[in-house]
């Protein structure tokens, strides 16, 4: 999908979530669902399978998010899946998050860790990033067991890698 189309869907989702008045919640739920799609290939392929009827795929979305996410989030995801843009959903959500943060004059910092951060850690990390880069950021945490330990922060094209995985990789490189 072209960037303009991703941006168009992101703007549409942003507008709907803002109109419904629960932008922060919808944004967070969409972000989590996008991460689930990235990490679960079977889920992604099922929702993107053109051989499965749209109603069946939307039913799968209802079953997954029903009762666990807001009705707005469920409706937005169902709409994207029904439009046949399942494979673009992670990029659309990233654009939505960027769009939402930008509306608050902030950047998005995607943080990968093995365990979730506490609220206090999120605030400290946002403050530390602000101190280091001069940018006001919103923290989006992605639970990634492959990190093993520590944190990997991505702000746009900048990456601050303090993971145990990186250190193990450095150790592996030193053996070569």
């Amino acid at each position: 999908m072209a960037d303009s189309r991703v941006t168009g869907y992101a703007d549409a989702l942003f507008a709907v979530a803002a109109a419904e008045g629960d932008l922060a919640v919808v944004e967070d739920e969409l972000f989590r669902f996008a991460q689930a799609l990235r990490s679960d290939d079977q889920l992604g392929s099922t929702l993107a399978d053109q051989g499965v009827p749209v109603s069946r795929r939307q039913q799968v979305v209802e079953d997954l998010l029903g009762g666990k996410a807001s009705a707005t989030t469920t409706a937005l995801v169902s709409m994207v899946v029904g439009a046949g843009r399942t494979t673009d959903l992670p990029a659309i959500v990233d654009a939505l998050v960027e769009r939402s943060a930008a509306s608050r004059n902030k950047s998005v910092a995607t943080v990968r860790t093995a365990i979730d951060l506490t609220a206090e850690q999120r605030n400290r990390l946002a403050s530390a990033i602000n101190t280091r880069t001069g940018r006001d950021v919103e923290i989006r945490v992605v639970i990634d067991p492959t990190v093993l330990g520590g944190v990997v922060t991505e702000i746009g094209d900048d990456i601050i890698d303090g993971s145990v995985r990186r250190r193990l990789n450095q150790l592996r490189e030193s053996f070569r």
Binding site: T113, A114, I115, L125, L148, G149, G162, V164
Partner: peptide, 27 residues
């Protein structure tokens, strides 16, 4: 060995150390 030794407490300390490094500009 690292995986077996990385319990929640150690993970928390690693995260705190990372935050301190980012704040200190050493990351």
């Amino acid at each position: 060995v690292v995986q077996s030794s990385l319990d929640t407490e150690v993970q928390g300390r690693l995260i705190d150390a990372y935050i301190d490094e980012v704040a200190g500009g050493n990351g």
